[in-house]
Every structure is written in structure tokens, then in C-alpha cells.
């Protein structure tokens, strides 16, 4: 497999998908490198599910291409065996038991049941004896957990999760988040879509922001948070720092707060602020974003709707 080492695990290039007049995905490009936990972030209707469907060979792109492990994806492509995916909610054959559902799904392509990582998958799902009950009797949370068991059967190198906590109650959401946390610890590459910003902030290293089918921003989570908005700084001399900061382009306001200062910026990075303070001979103790991804995200969407406004981490 010459492909696997150098090529990105996921490579989406110029992808467009139209449904009649509806443009669900519009010239979308991004990559996910091996080991990244990438969040595909966007509000409802942004085109996340459509992009993931194309990625899994379920829908044909109107334009552009999608590669997994360096190979183009088509319906039933062999490299799909290396991906564990959940597109929208988990679903099963309702009149069969959870366990038989897993077995039949696994064996459909001729794979031997003995080869599946059943113990690992069931340990993750944590359904206990319920796996012997028909899926009809499951709650949505249980189905979602069985869905995780199913996608883990093949020890996948890439996990594709489409809004995995959608439709769950708060307890179930926490369970699923913890589960994703455990999976990412094992170093799998993950592409996770969400309109839940905190979910991406908590679980992802990288983020791809999209809206109206278009790419808005791609980068690391900290880049996105730090790209604009509010920064909290602690220095040895607050008053002098204030003067220095207020002179920087793009800084709107500087407030004293607690032991430090909060700085509102329209653009620019934390590193720029830091450099200016250091050049002025100030000791910088702390410099961190106060803004959550949530605000950064909303800023980004706003910026896109206001032509000419600056955008932080657009790649």
C-alpha cells in the first residue's frame, strides 16, 4: 500500500453537490492528515452530511473528487473497509438482535466473523446483555452505542462520525463524548461533523468550518479561537501594556480585568500581541483566548455574510 504513508487520509478537492437548484456543497476542499481529530463544523444545512455521504461513496459528487487513503472513492470501494462510519443516526434491522445485526453487517462482504474485534467493540458499546435483545427495543442512545460497536468491528484507521450526539439526551451525550474521547486516545484519525461547537472544541485538534456548502476556514482549533475576538493577558505592568496594545492595528478596546487585561481585536493573532508587548520590554505572564470557539465560529459566519470583513484563519 504505497498510498497510505504520504497521502492524507481524507482529501476532498473542489467538491460540489447539487440537488436540482439546491447547492448542498459548493467547491469544498480540505484534507485530514493521519492522526488528526478533525471537526467538520457548520450550522444545520451547511452541507456536512452531504459531504460525508460523498466521502463514503453513498452519493456521487456533481463536481470534484474525494479520496480516502489516496485512492478515489466510489460506491463499494475497497478502502471503505478501513473506515468506520456513522452517517446521521445509527440504524439497524429492527427485528434482529443487536449482536446478529453486527454479525450480518460484518459478514456481508464475506469477512469472517472471527476476524472482527467483537470484544473490543462490545466493550466500547457497553450494552451488556442488551445486545441479545432485538434492536426494536433499544433507545436511540443504545442504538448510537451499538453503532459505535459496529464501526469499530474492523479496527478502522479512520472514523467518520456525523453529528454523533444528535438526538440524544444530556446523559447519553456525555456518554458518547467520553466514548469519542477514548477512541481518539488510541490515535485513530477522526473526521467528526458537528454543529455543536463545544463538541469540536473538546474533542478535536483541527477544524474545518463550512456554511452554505462552502469552506469558511480550516486550521487548528487554537488558531480558530485565537484568530479574532477577545484575549486575556497578564503582564508585569498593566498600564504600560494598555498603551502598547491600544496602538496596535485591529485592537478595538482594552479593559483592565482582575489581575490582567482583556483585549478585543478584530483581527490578528495572539502571537502578534505577544511580540508587541515583548518588544516594549514587558514581561508576559499569560496570554490566552477568552473567547470560546462558539463566538469565533459565529464571528466567522458573520464575517462571511459581510463582504470585505476580515477573516482570521482562512487557509
Amino acid at each position: 500500500m504505497s498510498d497510505s504513508r504520504d497521502a492524507p487520509v481524507v482529501a476532498v478537492e473542489g467538491l460540489s453537490k447539487h440537488f436540482g437548484n439546491v447547492v448542498a456543497v459548493d467547491d469544498l476542499s480540505f484534507t485530514v492528515a493521519r492522526g488528526e481529530v478533525c471537526g467538520l463544523l457548520g450550522p444545520n444545512g451547511a452541507g456536512k452530511t452531504t459531504s460525508l455521504r460523498v466521502l463514503m461513496g453513498l452519493e456521487r459528487p456533481s463536481r470534484g473528487s474525494v479520496r480516502l487513503f489516496g485512492e478515489p472513492v466510489r460506491a463499494g470501494s475497497p478502502q471503505l473497509a478501513r473506515v468506520g462510519a456513522m452517517v446521521e443516526q445509527a440504524a439497524f434491522v429492527p427485528h434482529l438482535s443487536g449482536l446478529l445485526n453486527l454479525k450480518l453487517w460484518w459478514e456481508a462482504d464475506g469477512s469472517r466473523w472471527g476476524r472482527a474485534d467483537l470484544d473490543g467493540a462490545l466493550a466500547v458499546a457497553g450494552l451488556g446483555d442488551a445486545v441479545h435483545r432485538t434492536v426494536r427495543t433499544y433507545s436511540q442512545g443504545m442504538k448510537q452505542r451499538l453503532g459505535f460497536a459496529r464501526l469499530l468491528l474492523g479496527r478502522p484507521e479512520l472514523l467518520v462520525l456525523d453529528e454523533p450526539t444528535n438526538g440524544l439526551d444530556p446523559g447519553e451525550i456525555r456518554e458518547v463524548r467520553e466514548l469519542i474521547g477514548r477512541l481518539t486516545e488510541h490515535g485513530s484519525t477522526v473526521l467528526l461533523s458537528s454543529h455543536h461547537l463545544s463538541e469540536v472544541e473538546q474533542t478535536c485538534t483541527n477544524v474545518v468550518v463550512m456554511n452554505y456548502g462552502r469552506l469558511i476556514s480550516q486550521g487548528t482549533v487554537s488558531e480558530l479561537i485565537g484568530s479574532s475576538g477577545s484575549v486575556y493577558i497578564e503582564v508585569d505592568d498593566r498600564e504600560r501594556a494598555r498603551t502598547v496594545l491600544e496602538a496596535i492595528d485591529g485592537v478595538r478596546t482594552v479593559h483592565l480585568q482582575g489581575d490582567g487585561l482583556t483585549v478585543d481585536t478584530t483581527a490578528g493573532r495572539r502571537s502578534d500581541l505577544n511580540a508587541a508587548l515583548v518588544r516594549a520590554g514587558l514581561q508576559v505572564e499569560t496570554i490566552m483566548p477568552t473567547q470560546r470557539l462558539e463566538d469565533a465560529f459565529l464571528d466567522l459566519l458573520d464575517a462571511r455574510n459581510t463582504p470585505g470583513a476580515p477573516i482570521g484563519a482562512t487557509s
Binding site: R53, L58, G76, L80, V87, Q89, A90, F92, W105, A108
Partner: peptide, 14 residues
């Protein structure tokens, strides 16, 4: 059942 997409994300020809 919503299960067709899961049948088809295996390397199985349509």
C-alpha cells in the same frame, strides 16, 4: 429502517 447506508458503506458492490 435507515439501514441501507450502513449496508453500503461496506466494500460491497451495489
Amino acid at each position: 429502517w435507515g439501514n441501507l447506508r450502513y449496508v453500503l458503506i461496506r466494500p460491497v458492490s451495489r
